[in-house]
Deep mutational scan, measured.
Amino acid sequence: MGSVRTNRYSIVSSEEDGMKLATMAVANGFGNGKSKVHTRQQCRSRFVKKDGHCNVQFINVGEKGQRYLADIFTTCVDIRWRWMLVIFCLAFVLSWLFFGCVFWLIALLHGDLDTDYKDDDDKSKVSKACVSEVNSFTAAFLFSIETQTTIGYGFRCVTDECPIAVFMVVFQSIVGCIIDAFIIGAVMAKMAKPKKRNETLVFSHNAVIAMRDGKLCLMWRVGNLRKSHLVEAHVRAQLLKSRITSEGEYIPLDQIDINVGFDSGIDRIFLVSPITIVHEIDEDSPLYDLSKQDIDNADFEIVVILEGMVEATAMTTQCRSSYLANEILWGHRYEPVLFEEKHYYKVDYSRFHKTYEVPNTPLCSARDLAEKKYILSNANSFCYENEVALTSKEEEEDSENGVPESTSTDSPPGIDLHNQASVPLEPRPLRRESEIGSRR
């Protein structure tokens, strides 16, 4: 089982795998120059863009038009607004034209077009017409509009002379109601789609790998820009990579689940303020055997998904993003964004995407760390350097704002901070800030 798991979770494809794949392509008759073999020097295209759209195009789909027309309502909801407006206008105009032609044909076959009612006051002739005051196609078209929109100006009306005319008036009224219901329903469904809710759900630009509770963890940050909550919010993550099976089958995008606390339930989050999602790199993680150097040379993509129900409509929305291997910062942490004021908490989104480097973060893999092949620094050293990194950030910001350097908390000259780390230190809580992250 261990060997199978290692093969499945191998992220960085070796040169031997690339040569094996190329040999397979030639042997199977696919070596026509169009096949692409992804190596370390040639990274694959992003499968999920940063804005959440999937970078996929469908080609050679059989009976595409028929399949889309069979699900016309979903098609109308998914198309762009400009095409929705075109369909909206065409549906009414074509129905008016169709029934206008029908009423014109009825008048033509009944002989109503030969009668001039402007110079004739004989009401008996008017009563013999199928539709009064309809003696041309324009008049028939206007009567069709008046019937379907129930305008009723009063000059044109159907008589009991022709039952077919009466039937067409009733039929057009029913068709008009159906068109109204369909168009209004599609427009309302399109307006109520929770897709735009994703514009106020954000992911951090970069993911980070750092120590948390004595273990290497992959972390990324999510935030909600609205005050309205995302009900039943939960997160998922998958690692996408290519691999070759033991039988020699090439899988271009193998999807591997990344555990973010599904078993323990901590994948469900209360997204009021930005939260750091934590994936513990343990023996079940696809990143277990990867060191910093392996991450730098790897070719994979981590897709992160945030799902929840919109509070206003109770409709489920899904926000997506992805991180390539070069977008994962090893040995970094996110800057705090949640600050405790006197009577409330304040979230500073200008710090949302910012990170700071944490010294002495192990550069080895989580496996080597678990097997004690890498000796961690003293816990006080880690905490102290973590505090120094934050303090230096604040000093830089104070210097930019014009604060005198004498007010900063610099260490005395001639003292090495790293050498001082081995000395037991008193706890130094942050002056006014605390970061709330997901705790395992």
Rank of each mutant, 00 (worst) to 15 (best):
V4P: 15
R8E: 14
S10Q: 06
V12S: 15
V12Q: 11
S13T: 09
S14T: 14
D17E: 10
G18F: 06
M19D: 06
L21R: 10
M24W: 04
V26L: 08
A27G: 14
N28D: 15
F30A: 15
G33M: 13
G33Y: 06
G33V: 09
K34F: 07
S35Q: 10
S35Y: 04
S35V: 11
S35C: 07
K36H: 09
R40E: 15
V48I: 09
K49T: 04
K50L: 02
C54S: 13
N55D: 14
N55A: 10
V56E: 06
F58Y: 12
N60G: 10
V61I: 10
G62E: 04
E63F: 07
K64E: 04
G65F: 15
Q66A: 08
Y68W: 14
L69N: 09
I72F: 11
F73S: 15
F73L: 06
T74N: 12
T75R: 12
T75H: 07
V77A: 11
D78E: 12
R82V: 15
R82K: 04
V86S: 15
I87T: 15
F88Q: 06
A91T: 03
V93H: 01
W96N: 03
F98Q: 02
F99Y: 09
G100E: 01
C101I: 03
V102Q: 07
W104S: 03
W104Y: 15
A107R: 00
D114W: 06
T115G: 08
D116I: 15
Y117V: 00
Y117W: 01
D122Q: 01
V126W: 07
V126Y: 05
S127Q: 09
S132P: 03
F137P: 14
T138L: 03
F141Q: 05
F141S: 04
S144M: 00
T150D: 04
T150Y: 01
T150R: 06
G152S: 05
G152Y: 03
G152E: 02
G154D: 03
R156P: 03
V158I: 06
T159R: 02
T159F: 01
T159Y: 03
D160N: 02
D160C: 07
D160S: 09
E161G: 01
E161F: 04
E161P: 02
A165N: 01
V166R: 02
V166T: 03
V170Q: 00
S173M: 10
I174K: 01
I174A: 06
C177T: 07
D180A: 07
A181N: 08
F182Y: 12
I183R: 02
I184L: 07
V187H: 07
V187N: 06
M188G: 15
K193F: 08
K193M: 06
K193P: 06
E199P: 13
E199G: 14
N206L: 01
N206R: 10
A207Q: 01
A207T: 03
I209C: 05
D213N: 14
D213W: 09
G214Y: 03
K215E: 03
M219R: 00
M219N: 01
W220N: 09
R221L: 01
R221C: 00
V222K: 00
V222Y: 02
V222L: 10
G223K: 11
L225R: 10
V231A: 13
V231E: 07
L240N: 04
K241T: 05
T245A: 12
S246Y: 04
G248F: 03
P252Y: 15
N259V: 08
F262A: 06
D263I: 07
D263N: 10
G265F: 09
D267A: 05
L271F: 10
V272R: 09
S273D: 05
I275V: 09
T276H: 07
T276K: 03
I281L: 06
D282G: 15
D282K: 10
P286M: 01
Y288F: 10
D289N: 04
D289V: 06
Q293Y: 05
I295N: 01
D296C: 05
D296W: 04
N297P: 00
D299E: 12
I302V: 10
V304Q: 00
I305W: 11
L306W: 10
M309Q: 07
V310L: 08
A312M: 08
A314V: 09
M315G: 08
T317I: 05
Q318T: 08
C319S: 11
R320K: 12
R320S: 15
S321R: 09
S322R: 00
S322A: 03
Y323L: 11
Y323K: 00
N326T: 13
N326A: 11
E327Q: 04
I328W: 00
I328K: 00
F339W: 11
E340C: 06
H343L: 09
Y344T: 10
Y345G: 02
D348Q: 01
D348A: 00
D348I: 01
H353T: 02
Y356M: 15
E357L: 07
P359A: 13
C364W: 07
S365D: 00
S365T: 01
A366V: 00
D368W: 06
E371G: 05
I375F: 03
I375G: 15
I375E: 14
L376P: 13
S377W: 06
N378A: 08
A379L: 09
A379D: 13
A379N: 08
N386V: 07
T391Q: 11
S392F: 05
E395G: 07
S399Y: 08
S399N: 10
E400Y: 05
G402L: 09
V403F: 06
S406L: 12
S406D: 11
T407K: 12
T409R: 12
S411T: 12
S411I: 07
P413Y: 09
I415E: 15
L417S: 11
N419R: 08
P424Y: 11
E426L: 05
P427S: 12
R432I: 15
E433A: 12
I436T: 14
